[in-house]
């Protein structure tokens, strides 16, 4: 294994760690607000109702968060976590690009394309 590869692996590891921590802190902050307001509510997960539409999309989550909604902030932390996956695929692609590994650049680009499609376009919305 080359030195560049080793370094890139370390970098991807770092990005993962930082991303997960940022996401965990956001979820924790949102969770504190959520608990403060709803800590004594009764839980309701036995029947599936589906989330309200504001918690299903990026724009809705962003609006919720600006209103100081704990739930919105938790969902934002989750979006961070998902975004980290996008970044890690992109960085792995960069690693292959740096080592002039043509077939793997293509494979990684395809994976990145599928992931982007799933995050922004798939599902009933």
């Amino acid at each position: 294994m080359t030195l560049v590869m080793r370094r890139m692996e370390k970098l991807i590891g770092m990005v993962l760690l930082v991303g997960v921590l940022a996401s965990a802190v956001t979820v924790l902050a949102g969770g504190s607000i959520f608990l403060w307001r709803h800590g004594s509510d009764v839980v309701h997960y036995r029947i599936f109702r589906g989330e309200p539409s504001d918690l299903r999309s990026l724009a809705g989550i962003w609006d919720d968060m600006k209103r100081g909604s704990g739930r919105g902030l938790i969902q934002l932390g989750l979006i961070f976590l998902v975004a980290v996956q996008l970044i890690r695929v992109a960085l792995t692609g960069l690693l292959f690009l740096l080592s002039r590994d043509k077939s793997f650049v293509i494979i990684t680009a395809l994976v990145l394309g599928l992931l982007t499609y799933a995050l922004f376009f798939a599902g009933r919305g």
């Binding site: 309200p52 918690l55 919305g125």
Partner: peptide
């Protein structure tokens, strides 16, 4: 899942 409303913050 997020688009389909399966993901609950709680």
């Amino acid at each position: 899942y997020l688009n389909d409303g399966f993901i609950d913050p709680g």
